[in-house]
């Protein structure tokens, strides 16, 4: 009866932004990003991708509470870059990787279809 609407799991509320960044005051070059209306799909993907970046010293995420559709990503970098730049670079590289994957899939599927049609 008082259950929240299911679309609140993935639609941003009024005035809500997808990501907000808060500088970690205890350490230099560290920030905590809060992602709204996102879950492990994006959280773990970004965490893992950030760790491939040699300038990223620390990257981890948590879902503070399972009933709230948000996660927190903490990123710490060396002097060469900033957490925000590292995050944006990770997103960019993933978009590129996915684009390549999409093109390879298109080609593979076509080849597979030809093989299927001829046999």
């Amino acid at each position: 009866m008082n259950a929240p609407d299911r679309f609140e799991l993935f639609l941003l509320g009024d005035g809500e932004t997808k990501v907000s960044m808060e500088q970690d005051t205890r350490q230099p070059n560290a920030a905590i990003f809060t992602f709204n209306k996102e879950d492990h799909t994006l959280g773990n993907l970004l965490r893992a991708t950030l760790l491939h970046n040699e300038h990223v010293v620390f990257s981890a995420y948590k879902v503070p509470h399972p009933l709230f559709p948000k996660f927190e990503l903490r990123v710490q970098t060396d002097e060469e870059t900033t957490p925000k730049e590292a995050l944006l670079a990770a997103c960019q590289s993933l978009i590129g990787d996915l684009q390549m994957l999409s093109q390879k899939l298109t080609r593979e599927w076509e080849l597979n279809k030809i093989a299927r049609d001829t046999s």
Partner: peptide, 10 residues
Amino acid sequence: LQEKLAAVIE
């Protein structure tokens, strides 16, 4: 998945 990532950049 790309849209999700693009939304972050955006």
